[in-house]
Design a protein around this nucleic acid. Structure first.
Length: 585
RNA sequence: GGCGGCGUAGCUCAGUCGGUCAGAGCAGCGGAAUCAUAAUCCGCGUGUCAGAGGUUCGAGUCCUCUCGCCGCUACCA
């Protein structure tokens, strides 16, 4: 059993949540759910960053205290997590007293290690950026980002000796090419390190809204240092026990590119200074760009994800974000794109696959998953041709590929692999044409009945095969019963031929096998799809008779079930509302 | 300015070690089928793989340069 600790950044409460927050949280959730399926010990953390000048100002502007402001904003961010269906184990707020206490301890350790010193700094400061600028950086004397005049500031600050970690950071990167992924982000961070690192200011004297420096209460710890430490502090009070020994170091810190430097350089250095192990990986995902719309000029090309989630549910939203853009790269999203994918892939391909399968099992087999012929359901032993189901080898490959891709955090690639299988199943329906098999099976049963009636009037048909009925028919003497048997047999032969049943094969067996294949394919999809669309996974399983939707989180399908051949027969497959009703507009 | 990325079919994009790599999906057109949410399946692409040079028996795939976007970073005259 492995251990898996994944984090999102803590989101800054100076502004309302947007699609980017939802995206990061969703991606982290997929990884967390996958690892729970593996049976790993999982901890998934998200939360909010609530200190700093901007929050203070936003609060003042609204006539509230910073804490009152934060308390209100936090509700919205918690709502994002809830709406996208995040299964986070804890939600940290940097205003939690436990966090504040832990940050002070942490910073004290760095101070004791001699990595923090006091120095004065003078320069032009942009309050909006919370950053100093040199004259050259200013555009016409104004802040390049905000266009506002900077103010001359001089203050005594505490500095973190980042420069002292240059060598060790460089070694860290060169020794772990996978430390930051994808690779181009790794290159970015490394080249930044190689350019030389300056010490950084980690406190402010002018700011009041923050955690005070333990040995100097006149100063407050600068927002990013406070924020980064959340990944550790949360573990100390999220549960009754101290979870640090159990979950640290983090497996993945997930984030967008804007905060790479904080996580890729400052954070490892802080950890080194305080004597902690470093996280295994940082994963930098891309930006979701809203645009490409020609029609929404008036609305400013803004796509608000929340109405979409309200209307269609969390799963389609999760699916869309991770399917549409290659994970780790920027991509364009739009409401049009959402609807297009929803209709073609969720409604038409996946939803309809379930509908048609359930319907056919209902019509042809009374709603019970039929038993495949003996040996048919066996998982393939190796790459050789499998004597049983024609889908077995392919399905096995799909499971293996999805596993590898999820392991690598290639979330969009995993979805692509899954979708190849969804399409395969629809093609399979066409190839086998169960409706033809059903006709042949019916005729076969009738022929068997007629043969039985001929051989033993009043007796039972007893599952006689068409071949047996045929030979009986040929040796029969002309009689009324023989004539009717002959007719039934001829009809059965014709139907079998139309359905592509080979000589001597049984239409009933072929139909059973095909319907079982489809049920099994869907069962497998419920396992593979679970991390991405947990609700959908549960609904599919419910329709297949495998479990109730109430068990969506407690009864998650284990990855052990990602093996071909486990679909039990006899389960009752019900009708039901479409999984994804088409969006008609 | 330096470093990095991107530029492939109308649209969104895959293309791992240079040799069926010129692809997928969507949209469009034609056909088949009828189990299904009129869903599905099959067939149909003359794309200078941004441009120019080079290496090679052979290059979207490597090298150089140019153009256009983007990211990171730095900042002379």
């Amino acid at each position: 059993m492995g251990r898996f600790y994944i984090t999102t950044p803590i989101y800054y409460v100076n502004d309302v949540p947007h699609i980017g927050h939802a995206y990061t949280t969703t991606a982290a959730d997929v990884a967390a759910r996958y690892h729970r399926q593996l049976g790993d010990d999982v901890f998934f953390l998200t939360g909010t960053d609530e200190h700093g000048t901007k929050v203070e100002q936003a609060a003042v502007a609204r006539g509230l205290t910073p804490k009152e402001h934060a308390d209100e904003m936090v509700v919205k961010f918690k709502e994002v997590a809830r709406k996208v269906g995040a299964s986070n184990d804890f939600f940290i707020r940097t205003t939690d007293p436990e966090h504040e206490k832990y940050v002070q301890e942490f910073v004290q350790r760095c101070y004791d290690a001699g990595d923090i010193y006091k120095s004065s700094y003078s320069g032009l400061y942009c309050p909006a950026c919370e950053a100093y600028y040199t004259d050259e950086n200013l555009v016409d004397g104004l802040c390049p980002d905000h266009g506002t005049p900077p103010v001359r500031m001089e203050e005594e600050n505490y500095f973190f000796r980042l420069s002292a970690f240059q060598e060790r950071l460089s070694d860290l990167y060169r020794g772990n090419p996978e430390f930051v992924r994808p690779r181009h982000r790794y290159n970015e961070a490394l080249s930044f390190i190689d350019q030389g690192l300056d010490d950084i200011s980690i406190s402010r004297a002018t700011l009041k809204w923050g955690i005070s420096v333990p040995w100097d209460p006149s100063q407050v710890i600068y927002v990013w240092v406070d924020a980064l430490i959340n990944y550790l502090s949360a573990l100390t009070y999220a549960a009754d026990e101290d979870l640090i020994p159990r979950f640290w170091p983090a497996s993945y810190h997930l984030m967008a590119q804007d905060i790479l430097k904080f996580h890729g350089i400052i954070w490892p250095a802080l950890l080194m200074s305080a004597g902690y192990e470093l996280p295994d990986h940082l994963f930098i995902h891309g930006y979701l760009k809203l645009g490409g719309e020609k029609m929404s000029k008036t609305r400013g090309n803004v796509m608000d994800p929340f109405p979409l989630i309200e209307r269609y549910g969390a799963d389609p939203f999760r699916f869309y974000c991770l399917r549409e853009v290659s994970f780790g790269q920027d991509g364009m999203v739009s409401e049009e794109g959402f609807k297009a994918r929803y209709n073609s892939e969720l409604a038409n391909e996946l939803g309809n696959l379930l509908s048609r399968t359930a319907s056919m099992i209902g019509k042809y087999r009374g709603g019970a998953v039929p038993a495949p012929p003996p040996g048919y359901a066996d998982p393939p032993e190796c790459d050789h041709a499998h004597p049983g189901s024609p889908l077995a080898v392919e399905a096995t490959d799909v499971c293996a590929a999805v596993r590898t891709q999820l392991e690598e955090m290639d979330l969009s690639a995993a979805l692509e692999t899954i979708w190849v299988f969804v399409r395969r199943l629809n093609r399979y329906v066409e190839e086998r044409a169960p409706w033809k098999l059903a006709k042949a099976a019916e005729a076969e049963t009738a022929a068997a009945a007629a043969a039985a009636e001929f051989a033993q009037p009043g007796g039972s048909a007893g599952g006689r095969r068409l071949g047996e009925s045929c030979s009986l028919a040929m040796t029969a003497r002309p009689s009324m019963k023989a004539w009717s048997m002959d007719k039934a047999v001829k009809a059965a032969k014709a139907a079998s031929e139309a359905a592509g049943i080979e000589e001597g094969g049984s239409a009933n067996a072929a139909l059973d096998a095909t319907l079982w294949d489809l049920a099994e394919g869907l069962r497998l999809l419920s396992v593979l799809l679970y991390p991405f669309m947990p609700q959908t996974s549960a609904l599919i399983r419910e329709r297949l008779g495998l479990g109730a939707p109430a068990a969506v989180d407690s009864g998650l399908p284990s990855w052990d079930e990602a093996v071909w051949g486990l679909m039990p027969c006899g389960l009752s497959v019900g009708g039901g509302a479409p999984l994804f009703p088409r969006i008609e507009e």
